[in-house]
Structures are given as C-alpha cells and as structure tokens.
Design a protein around this nucleic acid. Structure first.
Lengths: 116, 116
DNA sequence: CGGTTGCTTAAGCATAAGATTAAGTAATTT
DNA sequence: AAATTACTTAATCTTATGCTTAAGCAACCG
C-alpha cells in the first residue's frame, strides 16, 4: 500500500465513514461535550472512543481542548464545507454534462424518438 | 472488529475516502467509460482498479453493465445526494443551535446580567 | 482457427483500522 | 492524604484494505 501523506479530503471522508464517528459528530452538533460524555452512548471502551475522537480531530471536524482533567470537544462546522464542496462540484460537473447532452438531443431532427 | 453490515452512508463515505476512487468519480462525471479507459490514468494494475470500481459500485455511486467483453461504467449522481443530505443536516442542526444561542443572548439585558 | 483484447478470478502479502485490556498520570473530592 | 475521576499510554489482537502477480475465459479480429 505504501501510503503517501493523506489529503484533507481523505481524512474527512474517512472520518465520516464510520457510524460511531458520525454519531459523535451528531452529538457535538447539539453542543460541546467532554470525552466521557461523548463516550456515554457507546458500549465500547474509553480508549476506543478516544481513538475515534483522534480521527475526527485529524480530519479537522472536531476541536478539543483540555482544562484541568477534562477534555472538551467541539465541532468545527466550517470543516464540513470541504466535503460538501467536493460533492457539489461533482454534481455541477454532472449537470453541465446533462445540459450538453440535452442541447445535443434538442438539435436532432424530430424522427429521433417516436415516443408520443 | 467484528463488523456488522455496513450502512449506505458508511459505504458512500468509505468509497469517497480514497483519492483514486474520487478521481474515478471525477472522470465519470465527464461521461461513461470502459474499465480500461477508467484504469488508464493510473499506474496500478487492472485488478486493483477493478477492486476500486467494486467499492464504488457497492456504494451505489457507480453503475456498470457489461456488453460483449466491455464493461461500461457510469456515475449515479443521485447517490451523492445521500452524503450531501447528511452533511447538510449537520449544518442545519448546528445553525439551529447557533440561533438558539443567539436568541438566548438577545433575551439578556444589555449589561449581560439577568438580574431583572 | 489462432491470436489479441478486455476483463475476471484467485491467491497472497503488507499495512491500516478498530477494538481490547492493563497500567499510568494528574486533577478533584472527601 | 486517600480515594475517585477523567482521561492517557502502551501493548496486543483481529479483521479490513489496497495492492500485487499469475492464470483463466469469453469476445472479437484477421
């Protein structure tokens, strides 16, 4: 495999590809939470939750900061726009293509499709 | 790990998490392609490309059909809307939260101390 | 018919990912 | 100060992922 340094989009989509992590993001859209609050809905061990959290942090989706012994996690909603933009660009590219195809079909003589 | 059957969103984001697969999707937004046309820009082996293609198919992003010995691949742009919707829902949830916070702050007296 | 083309199948291998348990550390509480 | 809380770190395990090479097979071309 010999991976080269993963790009931001890789990290984003990879982070979102796991249901546990998506649930964590969903939780954080309701407001910030400590690590143990984040972990509470899951039956997995705390270290496992923290590993998921690290994936989210590396993707930029979540920021954390530690005060005393409590680490507080917040979502960075701007980060999501990166993934959103990629998806949107694909749709735009696709629609442009359909437009061209439509124009092409419009330019054909009438006998092309005897539908109605 | 013992994975349970992956949900559609898992498959979608997982499919998009790989740069090779994203490039394949980008290529397909320009129009359909055979497997070897799809493979052409990459220096990896053909089986490797086909494996990526299978991931894309399982995610629903790409449809293929074989005629003679040629398999033709097309993108299914509707599939992307699933991922798009999830992202958008998060943003909406986040914005609603910000609105509530704003309303709360607006309801405070000017000096910020809810004494009255 | 024989060869080439376009994929398919199968086996194998290295690394990454997701989880666990067991200890460890540092901030609070009592 | 002792106990509890809230993580951290480290080691380990299993399964998944991304890739390779080597054959195989069916369709098409000459």
């Amino acid at each position: 495999m010999l991976k080269q340094p993963a790009e931001p989009l890789d990290l984003m989509f990879q982070a979102l590809a796991d249901p546990t992590r998506r649930r964590m993001v969903e939780r954080l859209t309701l407001g910030s939470a400590s690590v143990s609050e984040l972990a509470e809905p899951f039956k997995m061990s705390l270290p496992a939750v923290v590993q998921h959290l690290q994936v989210l942090e590396q993707s930029g989706l979540v920021k954390t900061q530690k005060v005393g012994r409590v680490r507080t996690c917040t979502i960075d909603p701007g980060a999501l726009s990166l993934a959103e933009k990629w998806i949107n660009d694909r749709r735009i590219g696709w629609e442009r293509r359909l437009d061209r195809l439509g124009a092409f079909l419009d330019a054909l003589p009438d006998d092309g499709d005897p539908g109605t």
